[in-house]
Design a protein around this nucleic acid. Structure first.
Lengths: 143, 143
DNA sequence: CCTTGACCTATAGTTAACTTTATCTTGTAT
DNA sequence: ATACAAGATAAAGTTAACTATAGGTCAAGG
């Protein structure tokens, strides 16, 4: 009973190779093994995987995730450090969101730029004086 | 009369190697050269670099950026395709922002989890019946 | 018993995006 | 003239995060 690596892959969307790779990197020390040596995931392991996936998808490198997992195994002595992982990471993710929103302004400008050019039939429409003004506005959004 | 590669690096925050690498990959076909063969960036090139940086920082691979640059060189015949690049990319960036916001819920939960544990002096505070309920709520945010 | 499919480990290979290194050329200051 | 800083190219090296391959083990079905 429990889940084989392929069942976990199916349910999480991670590949079998990725799960084994994470295990090798020390991210899954909590996963049990059968007598024969096969990984035997339990229900609660999915919560660990969800946390790992959250951190990875928000840009935390695997080495830092491993550090966090290691601290988890050390128990209550590392609670402050573990809190700090998330407090710091939250700042980083907020910065990512802010940066993406800022870049989105440039993308929206480009959409407007090409829609206007297509309407006019040529990109040359953006060479006049009026458009230099518009370009100026856009440049203020440069990153 | 123009900017050297090191001046451009200084102003944009990109490294000299990165600029040369982008050039080699075909991202900077618009950059002039001096008689001696040195790159000679002009003011308008910074706008190109800003677009390239925007696309790269929002996750577009260099090969796709090159495709876009190539279309730019082809003139008005590719206006629709270029618009499409930004329309599609906008969707991707919106998806990224949405995903990050979703993951943020889990990060916030973890901050709450560790703050509560630290207040209690032990992580064991999250083992009771009441906390299983709270865990359930959190699991609904799993990704 | 034996085949078959899923599992295992270890190791090698891949890809993207740079970065470093080696070697050469150019342009300005003494 | 000459030194030397800054520019150039080509090619090799790096890093992260997988992905694929080779070779072996185990457990259930025929």
């Amino acid at each position: 009973m429990g889940y084989t690596v392929s069942k976990v892959a199916e349910r999480t969307g991670l590949t079998i190779s990725t799960l084994r790779y994470y295990d090798k990197e020390g991210l899954l020390p909590f996963v049990d093994r059968t007598a024969g040596g096969a990984r035997n995931f339990k229900e609660s392991d999915f919560e660990w995987l969800a946390v790992i996936t959250c951190l990875k998808q928000t840009g935390m490198p695997i080495k830092r995730i491993k550090q966090f997992i290691d601290w988890c195994l050390e128990g209550d002595a590392t609670l402050e450090r573990r809190l700090n992982v998330f407090v710091e990471h939250k700042k980083e993710v907020n910065a990512q969101i802010a940066a993406l929103k800022e870049y989105m302004k440039k993308i929206d400008y480009k959409i407007w730029y090409y829609e206007t050019a297509i309407s006019a039939g040529t990109e040359a429409v953006h060479n006049g004086e009026k458009c230099k003004l518009l370009d100026k506005d856009a440049e203020e959004n440069d990153l």
